[in-house]
Simulated assay, not measured.
Amino acid sequence: MTDRRTQLAQNLAQVEERIAAACAAAGRKREEVTLIVVTKTYPASDVRHLAELGVRHVAENRDQDAAPKAAQCADLPLTWHFVGQLQTNKVRSVVKYADVVHSIDRTRLVTALSAAAVRAGRELDCLIQVALDAESGAVSGRGGVAPDGVAALADAIAEAEGLRPAGLMTVAPLAGPYAGRPRAAFERLREIATDLHAAHPAANMVSAGMSADLEDAVAAGATHVRVGTAVLGVRPGLR
């Protein structure tokens, strides 16, 4: 039986080939796109294997999984991303290990994160999660702010101590005009990101695309892709 490290190395190589090919097709340099491996439900041992294989960015979407895993891997040269919906009662824990939070979607969360970051003596990069289906009045249940709310939220982050507006994140919508059209969705995100960058020049991250649609994200200008299944396999319980 193939050992886990070898399996991860093979999967990682395949994902790397996909990203490289997508960059070439889009006329972009490979180094313009950062791979974030989403390790949710997988053990700290997998994170260690990934670090040995050169991965430098990992993500989690649940604090109860992320906090102990990050503690076990504190010696590794990793940037930790929190990508799930974040409740205000979890922020004190999240700011202890997360370097980047991708799911900012309300001012109350900005206020809570700021207070926790100051208390912890940390500065966090914050991405605003954009709900593209909100433009049509649809509600995804995945969180996110409507596109017309991005500017005000970015200003709130910029004014909050301990936080920096770093860019935008989205998930390809399941409803509304972009349902089944990830390329169009990611191109719309890029348009919103261009406006944000004009107001906040340091906010240059565009986090979009996952295992199934990373090529569309790269073609649309994403700077970061969040890949879980294609690297780690189908999550336990979903087989």
Rank of each mutant, 00 (worst) to 15 (best):
D155N: 03
I192N: 00
F82I: 09
G162W: 04
V55A: 09
D3Q: 06
Q14L: 11
V150M: 10
C23H: 02
G176K: 05
M205R: 15
D155M: 10
E187V: 11
A193L: 14
N11F: 04
G84C: 10
L35N: 01
T88M: 07
E32R: 14
T194F: 02
V231P: 00
R122C: 10
N89K: 12
S114N: 01
G27V: 10
A112G: 07
V47H: 01
L109E: 05
A70I: 06
G144L: 06
G209A: 06
D46H: 08
A175I: 12
E123S: 12
W80Q: 03
A44W: 03
H224K: 01
M210N: 10
L163I: 09
R235I: 08
A71L: 09
M205L: 13
T39L: 05
K40M: 07
V231H: 02
L174C: 11
A21E: 13
G209T: 08
V139T: 13
V145R: 04
A115L: 07
V225D: 00
V55S: 01
A120E: 13
T79F: 03
V218W: 00
L35E: 01
A115Y: 01
G27M: 13
V227N: 00
T79S: 13
R56T: 12
L174H: 14
M205P: 04
H224L: 11
A179F: 08
E123M: 08
E32Y: 13
Q87H: 08
V101I: 15
K29Y: 11
S45L: 10
R56F: 08
D133F: 01
D133Y: 06
R183H: 15
A152I: 04
G237Y: 14
L113Q: 10
V145L: 11
L238E: 15
A220Q: 08
I128F: 07
P165C: 01
A230H: 13
A112M: 01
E16F: 07
V47C: 05
K69W: 03
R142Q: 14
G176A: 13
A44L: 06
A217P: 03
Q129S: 05
V231N: 00
L113S: 03
G149S: 07
I157K: 03
D46I: 08
T194Q: 14
A230I: 08
K69F: 06
M210K: 14
D148I: 11
A208P: 02
I157P: 03
V58Y: 07
D99N: 15
A156H: 07
L50K: 11
E16Q: 14
V227P: 02
A199H: 13
T223A: 05
